[in-house]
Every structure is written in structure tokens, then in C-alpha cells.
Amino acid sequence: MSKDNKKIVTALNEIIEMEISGVVRYLHYALMIKGPNRIPIVKWFHEQANEGYMHASLIGEKITALGGHPSLKVSPVPETKTHKVLDILKESLEFEEKALNKYKDLLKLVGDDVALEELVRQQIRTETEHIEDCKKMLDTTH
């Protein structure tokens, strides 16, 4: 494996660890939501958990295509013991911003690998949309 591929695989492994932790995080959030607005919010968190699984699978496939070995680690998911909807959404926003930054860092490493560049750009778009969703849900001015 080339030196550049090693850097890319290292970055991809950090991302897969984060995406897998997103599955755990969002499933936990879905289970902890209570109150009159529970159903649409739980649905959204389940969608996020499923998407995290799909992203982890996609990233794992890229790691193996580059000759690497996908990490079995999961980024820590802090248990804040607060399960109020707005607090959970704030945690989600922070998590999505960290994920976006990981993908932006990876974009700097892709070089002339067009397929990887397009994959990373799509993930950046998706993470950006998640951030926008979180911010809209946190907007209580309406």
C-alpha cells in the first residue's frame, strides 16, 4: 500500500468508527425520546441510524478496495443522562459537525482519485444537510 493510501485508509478508519458510533448514538436517542412529538422525531433518529450503517458499509468497502482493513473500533458515545429532545438535538448537531470535519479532512487527501473524491463530496453534502436539519429542529422561534 502506498504512503498516500495509508493516510487515506487511516482517515477512512476514523470515519467508519464515527459512522458506527452514529448508529449506536441515534438508536439510543430514538429509544429515549418521549413526549407528544415522539413519533416523527423517533422516525428521524431511526433514519439517521440506518444511514450511519449505510455510510459505514460504504466506507468499509472503500477501505478494503484500497487494500486496508476496516477498524472494529467504535468512537465513544457519551451518555449525558439528559434525554430532553432539544438537548439530544444539540448533541446530534455537535456529532454531525464533527463528522463533516472528518470528511472535509479526508477530501484534502484524495489526490487524483476521482471516485473517492466524489464519494467524499457526497458524504459532505449529506452531513451538511443533517446539520441544516438539526439547526431547523433546534429553531424554537416559530
Rank of each mutant, 00 (worst) to 15 (best):
L58I: 02
Q122R: 14
K104D: 07
Q48P: 01
V110D: 03
V42S: 10
S57I: 03
Y103K: 00
K6C: 06
I33G: 05
L12A: 07
N101L: 15
L109G: 09
G111H: 06
K84S: 08
R125H: 10
V9R: 05
E96K: 02
K73W: 03
D105T: 10
T140K: 12
L86N: 13
T140L: 15
A30E: 04
M1K: 01
H142G: 14
E129G: 02
K43Y: 14
K81A: 12
L31F: 12
A115I: 15
N5R: 05
A56R: 01
T141Y: 01
L12C: 04
K7E: 15
T80P: 00
S71M: 05
R25Q: 15
H46E: 10
E14C: 04
L58T: 04
E127V: 01
K3R: 13
H83A: 05
P70M: 02
K34P: 00
H28F: 09
I16M: 08
E129V: 09
L72K: 06
I15D: 01
P78R: 14
I131N: 00
K98L: 14
L109K: 12
R121V: 12
S2M: 09
G52C: 05
M137H: 13
G52K: 02
K81H: 15
P36N: 11
R38D: 10
L106C: 07
E17I: 03
V9L: 00
K102F: 15
Y29E: 12
E19V: 06
M54C: 04
E51M: 07
G52D: 02
R121A: 06
R25I: 11
G67A: 01
E96I: 03
T128I: 08
M54K: 02
E129L: 10
